[in-house]
Design a protein around this nucleic acid. Structure first.
Lengths: 190, 190
DNA sequence: AGTATAGGTGAACGACCGTTCACCATGCAA
DNA sequence: TTGCATGGTGAACGGTCGTTCACCTATACT
């Protein structure tokens, strides 16, 4: 019942990137009076489905547009009705530290296979100067870009692939670290 | 200059989940008059940084809260000033089909190693009845949950691990597919 | 039957919204 | 030096906001 209303708000927020006004909600819920909306909103606030600003305006709570975080695989999937008390987050907040500096690249080749990064995977990278040793970096060596571990020896920095089939890369002229890999994302299906 | 304003709006939207009012923007930008704000907003609209609703209200454009999608690794990282014409998306929109049915689980063990899913990875799963053969599923077999390929032979469904160290699992009593893996997500660093 | 109660309508309210106007200050170009 | 964009202030405007009031049903409970 009230879940329908919450779902409607969720959909509206998803497509408009803001909460509807009371007048819009009246249309949305099929009411002719804003008062009917106000009563529904009160219930939604009580239920914690939405919150109100310092001045009246609605804002989605953490329940909106978020994904539930569970424990280990072994714990399994909860039944639909026992989904209380789950931690939730948006993927963006969870994965992205510095939005302006972040990019997604698609991985080609098998040179990082043993690190669990395979052809077709996406990597979320962050353009930064502060790559640490051992990080997986997107680097430009002698004119072309690759994805490798950043290592260092007495000669200086070099790149190590995550696949024994390939050799380490010692830069001939110069090497530039463009970005550090923060996450790997693999999509299945379509 | 105007990028500062855009960034301020981005921050506000990120924390409040809505666009600020003109009065709030005046404070935000350090103006004393809403008119100064209106002029800035006009420029932002012209620049495509925000859009206006059917009635005045601001909404973030696709440029807000999104991540740039690039091509293959080999293409490398673009310089900061040549970031035009990139496809962008939010991770949530990109990865999540059915939000209500989606969960994130943490992977334990190495039984899907050859599928590029290693211990500590997260899987974004979707609770569904329509698992297809070959999908990686979260299934309950004889009381405990595992992550495996869904297969079928003349005896019926069974599970196949993505690691030759382990054997196929033929359910003794019953097997229940709880969810299908839609994405794998691996995070580096803290 | 009588009567709370929940859920809806319709109209009115003050407050604040986004917009606009007149005006002022600065800096650059003619 | 004059002229004129540019970028700001402050005040005013109608419109819509969220809220509230009185009132009208149904349904459920004595």
């Amino acid at each position: 019942m009230i879940n329908d209303h919450k779902a409607a708000l969720d959909r509206f927020y998803g497509s408009h990137k803001r909460m509807p006004t009371y007048a819009e909600m009246a249309t949305l819920f099929g009411f002719k009076s804003k008062n009917a909306v106000a009563k529904v909103v009160d219930k939604l606030v009580d239920a914690g489905a939405v919150v109100k600003d310092h001045l009246g305006r609605l804002a989605p709570t953490s329940l909106f547009g978020e994904v539930k975080m569970l424990g280990l695989i072994e714990a399994g999937i909860p039944a639909a009705h026992e989904e209380e008390t789950l931690d939730t987050t948006t993927l963006d907040e969870w994965l992205i530290r510095d939005r302006e500096a972040s990019f997604i690249l698609r991985v080609k080749g098998d040179s990082m296979e043993e690190a669990g990064i395979i052809e077709g995977d996406f990597v979320l990278v962050e353009r930064t100067e502060k790559a640490k040793l051992g990080d997986i970096v997107v680097a430009e060596v002698d004119g072309s870009w690759t994805l490798k571990y950043l290592r260092q020896n007495s000669q200086g920095y070099y790149l190590e692939p995550g696949n024994k089939k390939y050799r380490n890369i010692y830069p001939e002229t110069d090497m530039r670290v463009g970005a550090v890999v923060r996450s790997v994302i693999r999509r299945y299906g379509k």
